[in-house]
Amino acid sequence: MSLGLFRSEFVKGLRTVASYGMGMVLYVWLFIWIYPAFARARALSALLRSLPPGLLKVLGYTIGPTHLSAFLGGEFYSLLYLVIFAVFAIFTATRLVAHLIDNGSMAYLLATPVSRRAVATTQALLLLTDVFIIGALTAGGALLGVHWLLGHSALNEHTFLEMNLVGTLLFAVVAGYSFLASCAAPDERAALGLSTALTLLFYGLRVVGDVSSQAAFLAHASVFSAFNSAKLIQGQGHFARDALGLALAAVALYAAGIAAFRRRQLSL
């Protein structure tokens, strides 16, 4: 990899990473702040319990929103966290390779004696670094928020961090296939379209699989199924299996992206 390129691109992307990270932290704080009022709203709880079990499962209310962990795992981490993180992963992966090829600035990088493999590896490591920074900011911000806003530790910190690690690895995978698209697609628009379509497809498959027992098999085809936030936060998920599977998938996707970039014909 090229340290000079890593440093330059990291500094360039720092503001974006900070914005997404702060957005995540502010949202998780908002959820922690409204949780006491939500827990007290028994009428709402009763209403939720009257909803079909399948729908509740999709929303993450497997044990009812009577604990902060269930509330965060079922609410924040099952939707908003996924949306914000997915947008960040897709846009950053596209910006780091396909955008540089499209606007021609890749020509200057590849005109230096740094190999294509080294340039692509640098961009992949940068993407992973950014994903882990956002993941760490979210986890750290949430723990800080719980202590600050609720005044006591209402979370099992161990399982909470496990869930965050799996969530971060999930987005290392989302960023991984977006990176592969960024390296292999003919242009920036195609890369962005492909990554977005794939992410929507995976999310849709999980939702359909969760809602309908007949279509439960569909959820297995979705990478999002590897992140069951509601169970992981309770320590009921398959932390080691999911984390390892996601990590291996991410490594394979980045390796494929780097290989595609090395062979690519570049009109620079």
């Binding site: 090229s2 000079g4 390129l5 200057y108 230096t112």
Partner: peptide
Amino acid sequence: LLDLLASMR
């Protein structure tokens, strides 16, 4: 930009 390219050389 020139710093970046120099660092890569």
